[in-house]
Design a protein around this nucleic acid. Structure first.
Lengths: 351, 351
DNA sequence: AGGTACCGTGGGAGCGCTCCCACAAGTGAT
DNA sequence: ATCACTTGTGGGAGCGCTCCCACGGTACCT
């Protein structure tokens, strides 16, 4: 006991063994109580719980992790720089949703940025050390090597926003295609005839799906193919501004714009203002995400709402299921699940 | 070896012992190499490093934490809700600074929100379990119980923004008093005579110091005490708007405003616009933080820059020193350090 | 030559848990 | 009364490291 010298200073925290002694039971029994096993009699459980309370016992996470080979932590990995993370409400909304969901569990959530090469190297080391039981991946680009790395390390992962229609990871997404259709159908319903679209980054699958939705909605409304007015953006405000300017140049007669994100719409709004167009009188504007920006814009922005909170919850549920499922490594491939949640159009005065 | 059944699946990761066998040395030697101890001969070190590389050895964090009684992780605790965190550039700038500083170390950074009661309870459990070696506290209110809890648990902590002049924790701060003086002196220098101040939350010590700086700068410039035009804000945009409106009501003749944060200044700007005042012609405006908002405001905002990056670095350095210093718990009280860093006025067109 | 240092090194003990086997006691069927 | 379970329990073994003691070897003194 004295051999480790100055360690465990100040009397230290009580251990399982001490709780067991105090409660007059064995180590195993205390462990069972702590972990909520049903195979403990009520009397014993009460005695142990009393001892735990008296001693102020808190399990040692490191010991537990070592013995049980799990960490009780999952990581939310954002393959972007901090700067972009903070600039885009999508990420913070997602973080909020995931945070809410995780707080119902015993799990801990880690936020990891992997924007720069350096950060990616750190992340790789981190994952190699198996410091988390599972990973949540947000908005990964088509050619990102991260998913493969996770597969190689056999770390369970759930992705928000599949990389393609054949996503191999379990994924959760909102109905980008349907959401885009809602937006365009809404504009058509309001009598708009010349509807443009500013896309997101097209290496993001969801952005492509929004283009598909836009295209199909217009076609179904009887618009000829060459009515399409598409300009590439990148989800940023500046990108929205530039795309809008280009669209106005090419199609001065447009009377509506569907932007692939609220931030993009904010950029478009600037360009429209500069060009002297009134919103919504001259040009109707619809965004995507229904973030705080949409509510505070002038005029308030009609936007497609994704159920971010729900998405976060589903991601956590699926990931925890995969983590728990790590026993016989049986037919797990079979039910690769792709959850798609419905969107909702929130109408405001911009359209 | 077989007794633990299905655990450690897939052949598992190599252990220290395996590396030692491969390199033909003892366990202790490998440990020394891994931890960079100088007491290893060059030949041996090379052999071990080769074995590590061949086997792809990565230390098991849990085992290390258990044996060494440390976690190699520190937490950045934000006693605010996620919402406020994302709304205030101060926090994200601070996170960026701290993140940059930590990435030079082997430490891991955890971001923990403690806005709601529930989150605070989680945090308490978390700290009680000693899951981090140290804590970084950002913008704590005067009556927050967190610092006491940390002291009780003997967890090293560094605070950004001391709670009072007698802060007992090691702290890092920018010179709020001096920064405020810079701002006011700048306005005086530009010939402004009726300078108002919108404060931050006054339960934050730094906000009080800014008031002091404002007050003293005006007094030193020969303004009588009753020239003071102070209105309380709360660092938020809405608070700035309200305070500005109140100030205009009471002092329609004011010609300059020093706001306690850029976000506050943004709110003030709105109120000024609504009241038909031009910036800077009618009213000069100066903010604090020099955040992204200041650069993008219309007109670009003159603001007091805090060296956030540097603050983050200093906080990390001090905290790691305290963590490392946890040996004889000697005369640590003696050198309680209060680092104060200089600010810099960034002049733009709003003043 | 003997003594005293100090390397560099090997490996025992221990960190605080979980897992699982063993076993006592109780329950019900035969 | 016997066997076969079930239920609750105790405690050994082991997770993969770090810490530290002990020991052989070399270098430098007397």
């Amino acid at each position: 006991m004295a051999s480790h010298g100055a360690r465990g200073r100040g009397g230290g925290r009580p251990t399982l063994e001490e709780v067991a002694a105090r409660a007059g039971v064995g180590r195993g029994t205390v462990s069972r109580v702590i972990n909520g096993s049903p195979r403990v009699s009520d009397v014993t459980r009460a005695a142990v719980e009393a001892a735990v309370a008296e001693l102020g016992y808190v399990p040692n996470t490191a010991a537990r992790a070592l013995a049980a080979n799990r960490t009780d932590a999952i990581a939310l990995v954002v393959p972007e720089s901090e700067t972009r993370f903070f600039a885009e409400p999508y990420f913070s909304d997602m973080l909020r949703g995931v945070g809410a969901a995780i707080s119902d569990t015993e799990m801990q959530l880690l936020l990891i940025f992997a924007g720069s090469d350096r950060e990616r190297q750190r992340l790789a080391d981190y994952l190699a050390a198996h410091r988390v039981d599972g990973v949540l991946l947000v908005s990964v680009h088509a050619d990102d090597p991260l998913p493969d790395m996770l597969a190689r390390l056999e770390i369970p992962a759930v992705i928000s926003g599949p990389r393609s229609a054949e996503e191999t990871l379990t994924s959760v997404d909102s109905d980008n295609y349907g959401g885009a259709r809602q937006a365009v159908e809404h504009l058509v319903g309001r009598g708009r005839r010349r509807i443009a679209h500013i896309t997101g980054r097209l290496d993001v699958y969801g952005a492509q799906r929004r283009v598909d939705g836009y295209r199909d909605a217009l076609r179904d409304a009887g618009h000829p193919e060459d009515d399409l007015m598409i300009e590439a953006g990148d989800f940023s405000e500046e990108g929205g501004r530039r795309a809008m300017a280009a669209l106005l140049e090419r199609h001065p007669d447009l009377d509506a714009v569907f932007a692939a994100s609220d931030v993009t719409a904010a950029g478009a709004r600037h360009a429209l203002r500069e060009a002297g167009r009134r919103i919504p009188e001259d040009v109707a504007l619809v965004g995507y995400d229904d973030s705080a920006i949409a509510r505070h814009m002038d005029p308030p922005l009609t936007s497609v709402r994704q159920p971010i909170e729900e998405m976060g919850r589903r991601m956590i549920d699926l990931l925890l299921a995969e983590v728990a499922d790590r026993r016989p490594a049986a037919s797990r491939e079979l039910d690769r699940r792709q959850v798609v949640l419905a969107t909702e159009l929130v109408e405001r005065t911009s359209s």
